[in-house]
Design a protein around this nucleic acid. Structure first.
Lengths: 243, 243
DNA sequence: TACGATTTGTGATATTTGTCACAAAACCTG
DNA sequence: CAGGTTTTGTGACAAATATCACAAATCGTA
């Protein structure tokens, strides 16, 4: 037996699954109760719903009002990352297969894949995969595995094996740190084996980072600078001498 | 040369790509202009941004205020599917590994995984994966492969190989048709190999469908009824005689 | 620098949304 | 069905947001 209230909550969730937002007024009409009651229902299920203006939205849709500083911080490197991806996108050729690393930097690259190119894109992060699947001219290949929330990516042996069956023309790698001596490093160790295998298999690899990463050293080393064809930042592409 | 205005619009888009919503107040502070100006920027780019309450959201996030009737007719089967999943959820035990098939039906099951259970969940569809990764008590394993837009899922040899390394206690399968004689069928052939392998490896498999699927026959056959421990619909679980 | 055109900021006002306290209704449980 | 508990609705009020008109600032161009 479900309480009257949980029944309403379920009905609300149903209504929301169809559209993304529902006005309080409509929700009240839909459920046949007062707006006040809907308010209470929503307030009692913060995990499921949230308020935004006078509307109810699924809780996942929005972060619960992070303060202004966060936006500023998010923004400060975003422009640089986007700009770096603009340069990186020039390396994409029609009908080729590209690899897109995880992380926020290369998310922008997806937007910059030319609409008139037919591309196969390989990824292993949820964010990138989601953006890729929205593009009709891109065939998306995902490496599976266990999910790592820290980087929103998957990794595991099977993902590595998938790589063996792929032919990658251009690989775009990102890094959390680029040390002139030591090379490229990232934060999460589970990314290392994927990155390394990609570098070894791809015909050419490019390191795409914003300038704030240069000089940083992070815990997980994955490649010396020399393995990359170029380093691409917001200032453009820096060719590296071949091996 | 970009106008002052388009520069702001780009910056706004960047800020929004980091977080999902941005309060008008914060946007104004971020761009260093008045709220009125931000309002005008947003209003002038209805394709890109929208207002929701006092917040700016990416336009794609929301349908432009569809009328109340829409909510009402949102997926008439949603309630049935959810109800079926309520029954299915009773088969989930703490600390076990479950498999969740693709399709809209089993999306609801994710919401119903008890918060206090520690669960490993295996999936191969983007929708399900996304919902799973939001649950902190669930370890998500994804089978990779090539993306199929029709069912928002991935499939390929490597995904199948991943299954070999997993121990699945309970598998929840969905179907587009259940014919009493022929068995369970679905629409997309690429799903067949995944479903079959899961059924063969899982300790127990359950077929979760709403009643509208009963009696239907779809192009891709994947299992006779007998292989399932039970069929679960909105009316409850129907045990099947063991093999 | 002077000019008109455009963009931007400010404050007043109208509308919408949020909060709260309290009364009415519904719902247990013996 | 009496008693207490919980749920729901109502209206008053506070706060936030939307809209508008007009003044100030900025821009482009002679």
């Amino acid at each position: 037996m479900v309480s009257r209230k949980t029944a309403r909550v379920i009905q609300l969730a149903d209504a929301l699954s169809g559209r993304r937002v529902l006005h309080l007024r409509d929700a009240a009409a839909l459920l046949g109760v007062s707006e006040m009651t809907v308010r209470r229902d929503v307030a009692d299920n913060p995990g499921q719903f949230a308020f935004l203006g006078g509307h109810i939205v699924p809780a996942g849709e929005i972060e619960p009002d992070a303060p202004y500083e966060l936006a500023r911080e998010a923004d400060s490197h975003a422009a640089a990352k986007r700009e770096a991806c603009v340069h990186a996108a020039r390396r994409i050729r029609p009908d080729e297969t590209i690899f897109i690393d995880c992380g926020t930097t290369l998310e922008y690259l997806v937007d910059l894949i030319p609409e008139n190119y037919s591309i196969t894109a390989v990824c292993y992060s949820l964010n990138v995969a989601e953006k890729l699947t929205r593009k009709s001219n891109v065939r998306t290949v995902m490496l599976g595995g266990v999910y790592h929330p820290s980087s929103a990516s998957f990794s595991g042996n099977s993902g590595l094996e998938t790589l063996d069956s792929l032919g990658i023309n251009v690989a775009f790698l990102s890094a959390a740190g680029v040390d002139p001596g030591r090379g490229a490093t990232c934060v999460h160790f589970h990314e290392v084996s994927v990155k390394q295998k990609v570098i070894s298999l791809a015909r050419e690899s490019h390191l795409v980072v914003d300038l704030s990463k240069i000089g940083k050293l992070k815990p997980a080393f994955f490649a010396p600078i020399g393995v990359f064809r170029s380093i691409i930042t917001e200032e453009g592409e820096t060719q590296l001498p071949g091996l």
